[in-house]
């Protein structure tokens, strides 16, 4: 139970920091909406809805990247990362807290972006929304670990997309498939499988990337 209490305290802290500083969410929102407008001009007349769904997934992944790149910035300032690592809580709780908070920001951005997409381009059904949710979980779970790894390096903003994009290809396949396929179950299954494998892997390896012994 203390594990969940730690996660709750850490998540609440992230939400509060964001509420105060408003560094991430407004940028994500503005980015995803601008991207949708860019898509209008990138999609020639008569390209059809499938192309729009494909571009939607590009927008989702890049919006998530934008949020993830800032995920550990509050901890990098004033050396808070060391402070958290020293605390007696299980280190993986730090990862869970950050994943949940990033997921909350991404979902908040999508609450605006997805209706806008449906209005501008093509309808989204319930299955497609489940696909979005599953892919969000996967990208935030893996992304918050990769962002923590990149945070220790030079050129961290540059490094994160390079680390994360090859890992997000299965998510894009699953997401686009669940939006346009006539048999979307297989794609949802792929997304769930991805979430399961990579969430466990990230959860188990977080401690290793933030400590030395």
């Amino acid at each position: 139970m203390t594990y969940l209490a730690d996660v709750a305290a850490l998540t609440r802290k992230d939400l509060r920091v964001e509420l105060r500083a408003q560094d991430t969410l407004p940028a994500m929102l503005l980015f995803v909406l601008s991207t949708l407008v860019v898509f209008h001009f990138a999609l020639p007349e008569g390209t059809g809805e499938d192309a729009a769904y494909g571009l939607l997934w590009v927008a989702i992944v890049f919006t998530a990247l934008l949020g993830l790149a800032r995920a550990w910035v509050p901890e990098q300032e004033h050396g808070v990362f060391d402070g958290l690592v020293l605390a007696p809580c299980d280190r993986s709780a730090i990862w869970v807290g950050k994943t949940v908070a990033t997921l909350a920001f991404l979902l908040a951005a999508q609450v605006v972006a997805l209706p806008a997409f449906a209005l501008f381009f093509a309808p989204l059904d319930a299955v497609a929304l489940v696909g979005v949710l599953l892919a969000d979980i996967g990208i935030c779970a893996v992304g918050s670990l990769m962002a923590a790894m990149a945070a220790a390096g030079r050129a961290r903003e540059l490094l994160l997309p390079l680390l994360l994009l090859p890992l997000s290809i299965p998510l894009i396949v699953g997401g686009v498939g669940s939006a346009i396929s006539t048999e979307p179950e297989r794609y949802l299954l792929l997304l769930a499988l991805y979430d399961g494998i990579f969430a466990v892997l990230s959860w188990a390896s977080f401690e290793y990337v933030v400590t030395e012994s």
Binding site: L167, P170, V173, G174, G177, I180, L190, Y194, I197, F198
Partner: peptide, 16 residues
Amino acid sequence: ALIPVSFLAIRLAEDF
């Protein structure tokens, strides 16, 4: 872990 998952994804992506 990515090798089998990507392989599966690429197989599925053939459909569309």
